[in-house]
């Protein structure tokens, strides 16, 4: 029983790592650009499909070679959506941005369905037996999830607290107008924000698809979890997003001990609804 419980905790942390990657990107965009990007989930999904595309016929690239180009393509998709969609709307109201991002989300989801169909796919690796560690089974993919997300957190910390660009992004997230007044170049910081958010989304999407599978709807469901994590941690708060992701991952997996696994997704939804009831006013309308 105790090893079963340990396995549950481990699965929770694993899911939490991935949710945290998604939530940090989402909260970053919110902090800097002040809107909830509902198309963030599609960056997650396209990241996974970009890798699938590179590893599938006719290219047949091995994972080690296809991995980085897939991330670069995801970043390009993020930068492109800013350049051609969100940048022209920089001065638009939050409601406009919200609806635009919803539209983009539908467009990208159906785009993926157009190319690859709606069915569930995998990268076609054989399922590897996990190694046993303190009675917990860990597959190499799961190890990769833990290692790469920990590495990401360390790099993000160094970036945001030690580099000038990172500090500028935090300043802009605090107060965009004041940052402009002080001559902090906001355009470059905004581009950097998209690069980081898309990178984290793509990485998380690929890791998730390696551990489970791919389908066009994977973005939406994970967006909900990232959103719930973001709300839990306080919108715009990076470490809150990390913590929120962990809490969602853990509570989902622990709840499976009590409920049928079919209700797993309801946990994140429940937390989201609860947080929206408590603090909705701060999310969709200006922080004053």
């Amino acid at each position: 029983m105790s090893s079963f419980f340990l396995q549950t905790i481990f699965n929770g942390i694993l899911a939490g790592c991935i949710y945290a990657l998604f939530a940090i990107g989402l909260t970053l965009i919110y902090g800097v650009l002040n809107f909830v990007n509902f198309a963030h989930g599609e960056l997650i999904m396209w990241g996974a499909y970009f890798l699938y595309f590179l590893m599938d016929r006719p290219l047949n690239l091995p994972l080690s070679i296809a991995f980085l180009p897939a991330l670069c393509l995801t970043i390009l998709l993020g930068l492109g959506s800013d350049r051609f969609i969100f940048k022209p709307l920089r001065k638009a109201s939050r409601l406009t941005l919200l609806i635009t991002s919803l539209g983009l989300s539908f467009f990208l989801r159906n785009g993926a369905q157009f190319f690859w169909g709606a069915e569930i796919r995998t990268y076609g690796f054989e399922i590897k037996r996990g190694m046993k560690l303190f009675g917990v089974s860990i597959t190499p993919n799961q190890l990769a999830i833990i290692v790469s997300s920990t590495l990401c957190m360390i790099l993000l910390y160094l970036f945001f607290y030690k580099s000038r660009m990172g500090k500028s992004m935090r300043a802009i997230s605090d107060d965009l107008e004041l940052a402009r007044v002080m001559g902090i170049p906001s355009d470059r910081a905004i581009q950097f924000t998209w690069i980081i958010a898309s990178f984290l989304a793509g990485l998380g999407g690929i890791l998730l698809a390696l551990d489970t599978n791919l389908h066009p709807g994977m973005g939406l469901i994970n967006l909900v979890k990232a959103f719930a994590a973001t709300l839990l941690g306080g919108v715009g708060n990076l470490w809150g997003a990390l913590l929120g992701g962990m809490i969602i991952g853990l509570s989902e997996n622990i709840a499976v001990l009590l409920l049928s696994p079919g209700y797993k997704d309801a946990i994140a939804f429940g937390i989201m609804v609860m947080m929206l009831l408590i603090r909705s006013s701060t999310i969709f309308w200006p922080k004053e």
Binding site: A171, D174, L178, V181, M182, I184
Partner: peptide, 25 residues
Amino acid sequence: SYIPQGRNIFPSLSVLENLEMGATP
């Protein structure tokens, strides 16, 4: 240079980071 009324510092940045941002130009 312009100092707006009320909110004219970055509250979540440290004092040192505020000065570093101010030094941008």
